[in-house]
Write a protein that binds this DNA or RNA. Structure first.
Ligand code: SF4
Ligand code: SF4
Lengths: 132, 132
DNA sequence: TTATATCCGATAATTTTAGTCGGATATATT
DNA sequence: AATATATCCGACTAAAATTATCGGATATAA
C-alpha cells in the first residue's frame, strides 16, 4: 500500500542518470535499460511520455536519445507524479466520484485532511531533491 | 497512485461508526454493511481480521457483533495500516528485496529519505485522529 | 542506402485488490 | 431442545490496476 509505480521509479532513475552526465550529452533508451536492468519497451514508453510532457527532449535517429529539458528544481513531486502517472490521492473520491460509500461515508473529511498533509509534503520537494 | 485500500477504508468507517455509539453497544457486520453500503462478506473479513489484531472484540451469537477493544488514540496510523493491510512503503525494496534494479538503483537512497518522511507523518497521527 | 534511434497504438501477462461461497461454531431467545 | 442470528474461516473467483510485449511506422546520421 502507498507505493510508487514502476513507471515513476523508471522515470526517476532515468532522470538521475541523465543528470549525472554533461548537460548536452544524450542517453538512449537502450543505454539506460541495459545499465539499470529495466525492460526496454516499457522504459521507451516512459521516456516518450516524459518527452511529451516536456520534461525531457527526444532526439531522433542514430546517435539519438533523450536529454533533460525542464528545470528539475522547478518541478515539484506532485506535478511530476501527476504528469507521469496521473492523479494522486489517498482515496478515489478526491479526483473521481465512483465510490459506493460516498453518500454516507463518515471518514471522507478526516481522510482528506491527511491527504492534504501528504500532498503538501510531496509538493514541498522537487524532482531534483531525488535526482541530486 | 498512493491510495489506501478499500479494506483500510472499510476498517476506518467501521471504527468511526462504533466510536459514535455508547461504549458497550455492539455493532453487527450487517448493520455496518447496510448503513454504509459495503459488501457484507468482505466487511465481515475485515472485522474478523481487526478482531484477531485485538483492535475490536467479537461477540458471538444473536445480538452479537463487535465493539472497540483497543485505545484508538494509542494506535498510530502506521501500526494500524500494517495490522490491517500489511507492510507499507513507497518502494518494494524497503520490506522485500525482489527488485530487478536493486543492484544498480540510483534512487533508492533518496526515495528512502522521502519514505521516512511519509512514514513519520503517518506515525504522528493516531486512528482516533480519523475516527473523531 | 543502411543502420539505429524514437514513436505509437494495440494487446498480453502478471499482480494486486476486491468480492463471493460454503459450511462451521457460538449463543440468545423461545 | 429447537431455532434463528451472529461470528468464524478457508478456499475460491472476479475485477482492476500495473507491468510488460509486439508490430510496424517515422526520423536521421553516417
Ligand atoms: S467516499 Fe469515503 S469510502 Fe469512498 S473513496 Fe471517499 S473516503 Fe473512501
Ligand atoms: S531498488 Fe530502486 S527501483 Fe528497486 S524498489 Fe528500490 S527504489 Fe525502487
Amino acid at each position: 500500500m502507498l507505493k510508487l509505480t514502476r513507471k515513476v521509479e523508471y522515470a526517476l532513475i532515468s532522470l538521475r542518470h541523465m543528470q549525472g552526465k554533461s548537460t548536452d550529452s544524450i542517453s538512449s533508451t537502450k543505454e539506460i535499460a541495459n545499465h539499470y536492468n529495466i525492460p526496454v519497451e516499457i522504459l521507451a514508453k516512459t521516456l516518450q511520455h516524459m518527452a511529451k510532457e516536456n520534461i525531457i527532449e527526444a532526439i531522433n535517429g542514430p546517435r539519438g536519445g533523450y536529454r533533460i529539458k525542464a528545470k528539475l528544481n522547478k518541478i515539484n513531486l506532485v506535478e511530476f507524479f501527476e504528469k507521469v502517472e496521473g492523479p494522486l490521492g489517498l482515496s478515489d473520491c478526491f479526483y473521481d466520484a465512483n465510490c459506493m460509500q460516498i453518500e454516507f461515508c463518515n471518514i471522507r473529511t478526516p481522510i482528506q485532511r491527511i491527504n492534504n498533509n501528504m500532498i503538501n509534503m510531496f509538493r514541498s520537494m522537487s524532482v531534483q531533491d531525488i535526482t541530486n
